[in-house]
Amino acid sequence: MESWFRRILLTVVVLTSLVIAPAHAAGDEGSELVIEPLLDRRQIHEPAIDAEDFELTLFVGSMSIEDFGVSVSQGINLSYQVTPWGFIEASYGQSSAELSSYERFSGAARFMTDEQRQLSYYTMALGVNLLPGEAFLRHSAYNTSLYLVGGLGSTSFGGDDRSSMMYGIGYRLLLNDWLALHLNVRGYLFDMDLLGEQKTMHNMVNQMGISIFF
């Protein structure tokens, strides 16, 4: 019985010494350095710096839908700056077609319902900052960029979806670190079967936009 008790006591003492001893040793090391290192250990930490590679743009402008007149168009655009010279972009826009010249002049019945006259498109594109530069206004300098975009997408018009191609040129003027103004001219091309004849519609969009970087 006694030896059993002694064994437990011994185990407890050994365990406590194991736990306490290193703590003591560490304390000694702190007060008295045997070798003073000339170089600090290099600690690499990634600084948390705000990245602003995404740009969200709201556009408003006019869209000229071939044969259907010119109407107001709105759009939204999200782009990611991959390198200083290039970005990828997803965009969505919409407009609403007027009466076609045929409907206007022939006096014939309308061949599209109002719903079918709604035009919407989305595009996935690649952009290149072709001419980065600065613009000088009074005593301030603003960073600018003339960029080219081109992409593929889908356009919904006349009640149907069609594959479309987009190309364009734009000008971006940065007002400050996170706010920019855009001027954009883009062409949207798609094939459409209009009055029984398949033709390529070429629709130009002129837009002004405002964007935020985040």
Binding site: P47, I49, D50, A51, E52, D53, Q81, V82, T83, P84, D177, F213
Partner: peptide, 11 residues
């Protein structure tokens, strides 16, 4: 002071 980053450039 580093303020923000755009691609590999720091403001």
């Amino acid at each position: 002071t580093v303020q923000s980053r755009r691609t590999q450039w720091f403001q």
